Computed example of a mutant assay.
Amino acid sequence: MPKPIRFSRRTWVAGWVLLCGAGIAATAGLDAASAPDPRPEEPVSAECAEYIADIETQLAKAKQQGTDDGILAFSRSKVGADDCSDEIRDHFGGDR
């Protein structure tokens, strides 16, 4: 039976470092390749834009009056009005 080839400790360490480096590089490449494309900005309906402007006006009023405690409630009483919850969330940064 032939005698196995012996490697020094430095050779083993260098081999492991090389394999780990290749694995990290491959993982970084795959992560970069699979990053989702940014969502295209969709136009906001006129009704939602008006509602967002109304919210901003009320927020500015509350700030001027010194009642800007971070809590404001809004309600819509119109039946059949557009659902603007996604647009409001996007506008005020609720998607973070």
Results as ranks from 00 to 15, higher is better:
D37Q: 09
R10L: 09
V17W: 14
A62L: 10
P4K: 10
K63H: 11
R76D: 14
A14T: 11
Q58I: 06
P43Y: 00
Q58Y: 08
F7N: 04
R39L: 02
A53F: 06
F7I: 09
G23K: 06
Q65G: 13
R10G: 14
R6L: 12
E47D: 11
G80Y: 05
A14S: 13
A53R: 14
I52Q: 02
K78A: 15
T11G: 02
I52H: 03
S34H: 10
G29C: 03
L18P: 00
R76S: 12
P2S: 05
F7G: 02
S45C: 06
G70N: 01
T57N: 04
A60P: 00
T67N: 13
Q65R: 15
P38W: 00
A14V: 07
L18A: 15
A28F: 10
I55Q: 08
G15K: 02
A14N: 12
R9K: 11
K63D: 14
T11S: 12
E56T: 08
A25V: 05
R9Q: 05
A46F: 04
T67W: 08
C20F: 12
K63V: 05
Q58G: 12
S75N: 10
D31K: 05
E42G: 00
D37A: 15
G80W: 05
E50T: 07
F74R: 07
D68M: 13
A22R: 06
K3Q: 13
C48E: 01
G80I: 07
L30G: 10
I5N: 08
D68A: 15
A35V: 12
Q65S: 15
S8E: 13
L18G: 04
A26K: 11
L30C: 11
Q64E: 15
S77P: 01
W12G: 03
A53C: 08
S45I: 05
E42M: 06
L30R: 15
P40F: 10
D69S: 13
G29V: 03
F7V: 07
A26P: 06
I24C: 01
E56I: 03
A46I: 00
Q58E: 14
